[in-house]
Simulated assay, not measured.
Amino acid sequence: MYKISEFEEMTGLSKETLRYYAEVKLLEPAIIDPENHDRYYDDGSYFLALLLVKLRRFGFTIQEMIDVMADESFAHLEELLQQKKNKIQKQMEDLRLQVEEIDEFLASGMEEDDA
């Protein structure tokens, strides 16, 4: 078992984030001491915390993360990751086109300056 401060160091999730994740039922402590309310996490919690860290880095919203965690078999995780990847690729293409438009606009302005 790991105290919340140890778990914070192990996972990179702040105490505030861990408390919030527990509040929204995303990642609850394995045990909460009834006397002093200390939170303890176990190895299973560690695996789930690492998954949550990855999902956040991949741009998942809290609700999307809750949906993933609700499906304990993670059967749809691959599909969700593929959807997220496709969305990011679309955003990258949109940004590339915006950069091209800016370049064209700047080039047209320079041509007018030269005239």
Results as ranks from 00 to 15, higher is better:
Leu48Val: 12
Tyr20Phe: 14
Gln98Ile: 01
Gln82Ala: 14
Ile4Pro: 07
His76Asp: 13
Leu26Ala: 00
Gly44Tyr: 13
Ser45Met: 02
Asp114Gln: 12
Lys90Phe: 02
Glu93Met: 03
Asp94Glu: 08
Glu72Phe: 08
Asn86Thr: 15
Leu106Arg: 04
Leu81Ser: 05
Glu35Pro: 02
Glu28Trp: 01
Asp67Arg: 02
Leu95Lys: 00
Glu6Thr: 11
Leu27Asn: 03
Phe60Ser: 03
Ala115His: 12
Lys84Asn: 07
Gly59Leu: 03
Glu72Pro: 01
Asp67Gly: 00
Glu100Asn: 03
Glu104Trp: 04
Leu13Ala: 07
Glu78Met: 15
Leu55His: 06
Arg19Tyr: 08
Leu77His: 07
Val68Glu: 00
Val24His: 06
Ala115Pro: 14
Lys54Phe: 15
Leu81Asn: 10
Arg96Ala: 02
Asp114Asn: 07
Phe60Asn: 02
Val53Trp: 07
Glu16Asp: 14
Asp114Leu: 13
Gln82Met: 14
Ala115Asp: 11
Val24Ser: 04
Val24Asn: 06
Gln82Cys: 10
Arg19Trp: 02
Asn86Cys: 10
His37Pro: 00
Tyr21Glu: 10
Leu80Met: 15
Tyr41Asn: 08
Asp71Tyr: 00
Ser5Asn: 13
Glu23Ala: 04
Glu112Gly: 00
Thr17Trp: 06
Met65Asn: 04
Ser73Asp: 09
Arg57Phe: 10
Gly44Glu: 15
Arg57Gln: 14
Glu100Val: 04
Glu79Gly: 04
Gln63Ile: 01
Lys90Pro: 01
Glu16Tyr: 13
Lys15Asn: 12
Glu6Met: 10
Leu80Asn: 07
Glu101Gln: 09
Asp42Leu: 05
Lys85Asp: 11
Tyr20Gln: 10
Leu26Cys: 00
Pro34Gly: 12
Leu95Asp: 00
Met65Val: 03
Glu93Leu: 02
Asp42His: 11
Glu6Trp: 10
Leu48Asn: 11
Pro29Trp: 02
Phe105Ala: 08
Glu112Ile: 04
Lys84Arg: 13
Leu81Phe: 08
Glu9Thr: 09
Met1His: 09
Arg57Pro: 05
Gln89Val: 08
Asp43Glu: 14
Phe58Lys: 12
Gln63Ala: 03
Thr17Gln: 15
Glu6Cys: 08
Gln83Cys: 04
Asp103Lys: 14
Ile32Gly: 07
Ala49Ile: 12
Lys15Cys: 05
Gln63Arg: 07
Thr61His: 09
Ala115Trp: 09
Ala107Asp: 10
Lys87Gln: 15
Val24Lys: 07
Asp114Ala: 11
Glu112Thr: 03
Gly109Gln: 04
Asp94His: 01
